[in-house]
Design a protein around this nucleic acid. Structure first.
Lengths: 177, 177
DNA sequence: TTTTTATTTCATTATTTACTGAAATTAAAG
DNA sequence: CTTTAATTTCAGTAAATAATGAAATAAAAA
């Protein structure tokens, strides 16, 4: 499939950003392609469109599965695997938050808990102990908060986001009562 | 400086996580070291403690400056540069959010705006155009929201986070009125 | 100023990560 | 079963990134 100019720009940019988002270029490009195409595509079609090796596509599709960003779709009269990603940006957002939380937060939360449980913690100076505790507390709070937020309906989540810092009124009214 | 067991574990772990957080091991280790030490350190001391090349420390300190994660501190009676990072996890959090937003969101927002302004956008199919619009809208919303949130006082922000999905009550009460 | 100390730069090397292509595997069709 | 198509694996290569060490620069002390 030959991409139209904007789609091409989108795919190439998504690919470049992939690196800062924690996946490699091909992985991000495939995701972008499936997202912009909005229909299931087979591996050969992806290969041809992106101009990368077939094996690279195979590995990248597996990586996208690990991220829960694609699912395989059987297509009537075609024995090849077809892959699609959600076209719902909210679902995409949720998935990315969930996955990044598990990669970027959970391992650290575990290590910090270990640190604090360890018999060696007492020999660290008080201020350092405190900082580890505070780091853990913040990460745990953010972690549960993210888990709760991604359970909200997109409609509701959008309202929360649009409201922005105005939530503080709610916070204040709650703590006053 | 010889690190105590927990501090060592903390520094090594932070270093490993650095990769998934978008900085390299040394950069993350130096940050962890300054955070756990809780006092200004000079480059030689950092070099010695971490066992890496002096030049690596120099480059990494510059990178940490680019992230606004350290500042240089003159110390009475010592002509060497001393560096410190905040020991306030909330300030750390804010900085990371601000910086990652500018690296991970802003460039994409710009490209998506370009895509939609481009004369070529009309030749894409309607559904694809829509998805680009929705992606941009979501990213813009998240971006402004993050900017607003990191302006809140730590106290307030913690309350908002602790409240979690309960904000939806506020959202509902607002849209009902 | 010259000397000493501190710091940075950058070419080189090492390490890690990404990608390719060929071979192996799996599985459907004949 | 045999053949053909689809997919995966993985050793080897390429590319990108990180780290080193020597040389250059900067800046304070003598």
């Amino acid at each position: 499939m030959e991409l139209k100019p904007v789609a091409k720009k989108f795919v190439l940019h998504w690919g470049e950003m992939g690196t800062t988002w924690g996946v490699n270029r091909t992985v991000a490009q495939i995701h972008a392609l499936l997202f912009i195409a909005g229909r299931p595509m087979n591996a050969d079609e992806i290969t041809e469109t992106l101009g990368v090796a077939r094996s690279n596509v195979s590995m990248s599709l597996k990586e996208l599965s690990n991220w829960n960003l694609i699912r395989s779709m059987p297509l009537m009269g075609d024995r090849r695997d077809h892959y699609e990603t959600t076209t719902d940006v909210w679902e995409l957002f949720r998935t990315v938050v969930r996955e990044r939380k598990s990669r970027e937060f959970d391992p650290t939360i575990e290590v910090l808990r270990d640190c604090l449980k360890s018999g060696d913690i007492a020999s660290e100076d008080k201020a350092a102990q405190m900082r580890i505790k505070e780091t853990l507390a913040l990460m745990e709070a953010l972690s549960s908060w993210a888990s709760e937020m991604i359970r909200l309906e997109p409609e509701t989540m959008m309202k929360v986001i649009k409201m922005g810092a105005k939530v503080q009124q709610f916070v204040r009214s709650k703590s006053d009562s």
